[in-house]
């Protein structure tokens, strides 16, 4: 618990790089609203699993990277990811007890918060929103959560990251 292997850090970083690549892969126009928020899902998982190592500060940094990668106004993703990181940190003990489908509901709400913050600021910066389509990613993320969770957990167990 106390000693942190540097290898573990690389693995966590690796999962974030994969998540960022997945969030950038071009999709056909019809599917572009159906992209899950992979980075937000990874942030939620790592905070739930390792709250003593991965906290709001790391989430903030990841958000800043995502801002640069997406070309959005600097700080939008940092804010939204920090907020959902903070919320997850507050209830990570409860969330660990939930069955997967119940976790998925919480994840849905967290991603909804993420999307709301992101598109509010996006709208302030000058792009208009189209109804509630921006909530589709939250649904897709929640549906995908059990798989993401199981996969990241098996990664964490294989490399014994704690």
């Amino acid at each position: 618990m106390t000693q942190h292997s540097p290898g573990g850090l690389m693995i966590i970083l690796g999962t974030f790089i994969v998540a960022m690549v997945l969030s950038q892969i071009p999709l056909p126009v019809i599917l572009e609203w159906w992209r899950p928020e992979f980075v937000a899902l990874s942030v939620i998982y790592w905070i739930m699993a390792l709250p003593q190592r991965f906290g709001v500060g790391s989430a903030w940094l990841v958000g800043l990277m995502l801002d640069v990668l997406k070309g959005s106004v600097l700080g939008i993703n940092a804010i939204s990811l920090t907020i959902i990181a903070f919320l997850t940190l507050q209830m990570h003990k409860k969330m660990r007890m939930y069955p997967l489908w119940q976790q998925a509901i919480v994840v849905f709400l967290l991603v909804v918060v993420n999307q709301f913050i992101f598109y509010w600021f996006q709208a302030l910066a000058g792009t208009s929103a189209l109804g509630f389509t921006f909530l589709i990613p939250a649904v897709v993320s929640a549906v995908l959560w059990p798989w993401v969770f199981v996969m990241l957990r098996s990664i964490r167990r294989t490399f014994k990251i704690s």
Partner: peptide, 10 residues
């Protein structure tokens, strides 16, 4: 603190 820094950046 982080939210304030991010708002400043924004």
């Amino acid at each position: 603190l982080l939210i304030i820094i991010a708002l400043g950046l924004l």
